[in-house]
Write a protein that binds this DNA or RNA. Structure first.
Lengths: 199, 199
DNA sequence: CAAAATCCTTATCTTTTGTTAACGTTTTCA
DNA sequence: TGAAAACGTTAACAAAAGATAAGGATTTTG
């Protein structure tokens, strides 16, 4: 995919939050950069400060923590979604988790520095504040649902809903990562799948 | 507490995100309103659209869902914290949970309508966008930690950490609500407490 | 292509949690 | 103040999940 196609996908993606006229877009795109990750390459590692927020134009990544030497996958992002170690990016603190490409992945990136410059750019400031607000609000809603699921649902219920609403991720993501995402062990997910098949 | 004292606490609270000069503050405060909740009174109920975001100047509330006829408490907010059914407030959708006062509670409120007016007010727009962005980012970080806790920690570990970092809530909140918050049943929390005492 | 690594399932055993009910204490409120 | 409601603990049993290991299939990779 060439840069023009990536930019098009990106403009489409950001339009969910804010739209630019052609003049603004011209300026805005000067602050963007491009990158790619090969499979298993890390975008973020524990202990560093995350300097970019990204839009994924192709591929998939997983977010994971290491606890007692074990990797625990907490989330995934796919093409046409955003990716960042937000807490580290926003607060400029050391990252506490890892982000790793699960497939060959292509990115459009905004650096923290460039974001600050845009927030001070007279032509872009208001829209960038709004973009920052709306994307943060978007994620709040996602998180709210996710916490609610942990509070109100059993692992089995969470699995059944995931299987209904995002069947495709089982074709795309190793099952033991999905188990972590559901808050259980891979062995337990295997049992749940067997159980729910029989019913 | 009179309105002046509440406003002072509020100004202090919002200063975490954005500061107003006296002229701006003058205008800003015209968009605020005040309210209070008696113990057990609801601020938000399932099925309605939440029209306010609030700053709690006194008291405490709990957020809960009803599942299979049972109340499940997912979160608490206390004085000098913000409170809203954010997802409903932001998206203008029907609320899926309840917010109820646990104590006599006093609030400073911003209605959705007034917030929109401020976002269009030349003197306030940029700061309100920024406020919206920063408070949303603040909550993202909280949620990120909360999800990570569910993914990486056992209920017992979550209890021990809560006991260390927020011991006072055990003096203030009924234990069976805290159990829900930790993702377990009241009976299970009682067992965990016994277990961890003996060790 | 062949060895190594990864992955899912299954089995066994242990630990933890859920469910229900009972009991005593404390709190609420008419 | 006195009855009712709310609350925390405990017990007993059932259900679910964690830990560990083994086995077979698939995928990766030198």
């Amino acid at each position: 995919m060439d840069k023009q196609a990536q930019l098009k996908a990106f403009r489409n993606g950001i339009a969910q939050f804010v739209t630019f006229n052609d003049t603004e877009w011209e300026v805005f795109t000067q602050y963007l950069s491009f990158s790619s990750l090969s499979k298993k390459e890390h975008f973020a590692v524990e202990g560093k400060v995350c300097d970019y927020m990204c839009f994924i134009t192709r591929g998939a990544v997983r977010y994971y923590h290491i606890k007692d030497g074990q990797e625990i996958t907490g989330y995934f992002s796919f093409e046409n979604e955003w990716m960042s170690a937000y807490k580290s990016f926003l607060k400029r603190t050391h990252n506490t988790n890892y982000i790793q490409a699960l497939e060959e992945t292509a990115l459009v990136m905004i650096s923290y520095q460039n974001l600050q410059q845009m927030l001070n750019h007279p032509l872009l400031a208001l829209k960038m504040e709004r973009f920052g607000r709306l994307i943060a609000e978007y994620y709040i809603c996602c998180y709210e649902d996710r916490v609610t699921a942990f509070i109100t649902q059993t692992p089995e219920e969470r699995y059944i809903i995931l299987e209904k609403t995002a069947k495709d991720i089982f074709q795309r993501i190793p099952q033991h990562f999905i188990a972590n995402f559901l808050g259980i062990t891979p062995v337990s997910l295997s049992r749940i799948r067997k159980r729910t098949l029989l019913q």
